[in-house]
Design a protein around this nucleic acid. Structure first.
Lengths: 236, 236
DNA sequence: CGGGCACTTGATAGTAATCAAGTCCGGTGG
DNA sequence: CCACCGGACTTGATTACTATCAAGTGCCCG
């Protein structure tokens, strides 16, 4: 299948270049998008597969076309610290564009994924040709910093309940949708995953969730979803 | 005092535009620097003065010409969470360039300071004219993200000793210098400040520092400086 | 020399980690 | 269709750590 500039085709979407769904390229017109597409290599991973391993030397930016990916580190005491959960349109590996050092994180598919890979050489040319891409990246990095700063703020507290609450609010924003019963949240992580995200023990997550349910603030439904009944209460 | 493009003068340095000391402008030539300088407003703050208050609406990027500034937030439980300690050449307030929302942090001079202020309108023009500035900013934001990710990693652990050790290693990198006795570190923060930085109680910082001294890993000298005798031991 | 402030040290209490059983649920095979 | 198996989750008991409260102590600066 060959892509012509007038009849743009993408092997993933079949009708539209996937780069078009990616915020950092949103300012480009169709022809420019095609130049981007020509630089992209694609790959698929199934749930559980490792995409990047801490220490690996990579020279590419990775953009997620579909699925979810978690990035994490192994801490000095052997725990897994989850840093981000990325999904469609998100990118990571921006450090690879700048520095020649091993990855400081692991990346693992937590759902079946399709990703787009852009090698640093090609990407740097893009940045020089389309400065608007740089601005989009700055914007995204600022958002990520904001997220990390919030995370530091809530982690600095030793109150596990606060950490759980903040995690639920974040999940509500990213994965929640309205529902007659309350805000329905599809949890992207298992209990253990959530524990690794906020840096507490598995058991503590269980206990705090049950506690929130007893107080009527949330309602658990199986292990993978919950309803937030009283969002205000979580904010305190 | 009027600055001519051939005879560049800065009211702070007397002989060289201060913008030249700022990494994000390091790729510009003298004439370009002058354009930057023409956009800059300057201000001075003395130790202890507040520069930004959480919630303030600012539309400027702030670059530090001299002195040190801490940025922090008041957490839900009323504690002060220090996020960064900025010094000469660092910038902050990049969120002001993108969003129309109140500052998410406080900024306070922890030493007498001279700062340069660039209003967002002028700065956005700079970004469009000199894309290399964007790249420098991306680089700095990546470094800051890396720092925050490390911070999240160490904060996620509930082990206060680990947090203290990591803080000392960071201070060693930024404020340390070699000395016959070991690495001499000038502490930028008081005990209480350090406690607010790593999210533990004042007393815990004291105890852990004494403990490290007892083990022969550091040597305290007054309250504002210490020697790191065994850097390897801190890394574990 | 004296006052004030930052720091240290000690005692106690509270919270979450850890260890150890259970329980629930989805999937598989008879 | 049902019984069984294993993994993920919950619940309970104990332990360990750090926050907190409460006195000191040392030091800088007038």
């Amino acid at each position: 299948m060959i892509a012509l500039s007038k009849d743009i085709v993408c092997e993933h979407c079949g009708h539209q270049p996937c780069a078009k769904r990616v915020p950092i390229f949103s300012s480009l017109d169709d022809e420019e998008i095609m130049q981007v597409v020509s630089l992209i290599t694609r790959r698929e991973y199934s749930k559980g597969e490792m995409i990047i391993i801490q220490g690996d030397l990579s020279r590419s930016l990775i953009i997620i076309h579909s699925g979810k990916i978690k990035t994490f580190r192994y801490t000095a005491d052997g725990r897994e610290q989850i840093l981000y959960i990325f999904q469609q349109g998100d990118f990571f590996g921006e450090m690879n564009l700048l520095y020649e050092r091993g990855a400081s994180y692991n990346a693992q598919a937590i759902e079946d994924c399709r990703i787009c890979i852009i090698h640093r050489d090609g990407f740097q040319k893009l940045l020089q040709r389309y400065p608007s891409i740089s601005l989009k990246i700055i914007e995204e990095l600022c958002n990520r910093l904001d997220k990390m700063e919030n995370m530091v703020e809530s982690m600095s507290s030793n109150d596990a309940e606060l950490r759980v609450n903040e995690m639920l609010l974040e999940f509500s924003r990213k994965y929640g949708r309205e529902h007659p019963e309350g805000r329905l949240v599809e949890l992207p992580l298992s209990r253990e995953g959530m524990a690794n995200y906020i840096g507490v023990a598995r058991e503590t997550v269980s206990r705090k969730l049950v506690h929130l349910q007893d107080e009527g603030i949330i309602r658990l439904e199986g292990n993978k979803r919950l309803f937030i009944l009283d969002e205000k209460a979580l904010q305190r």
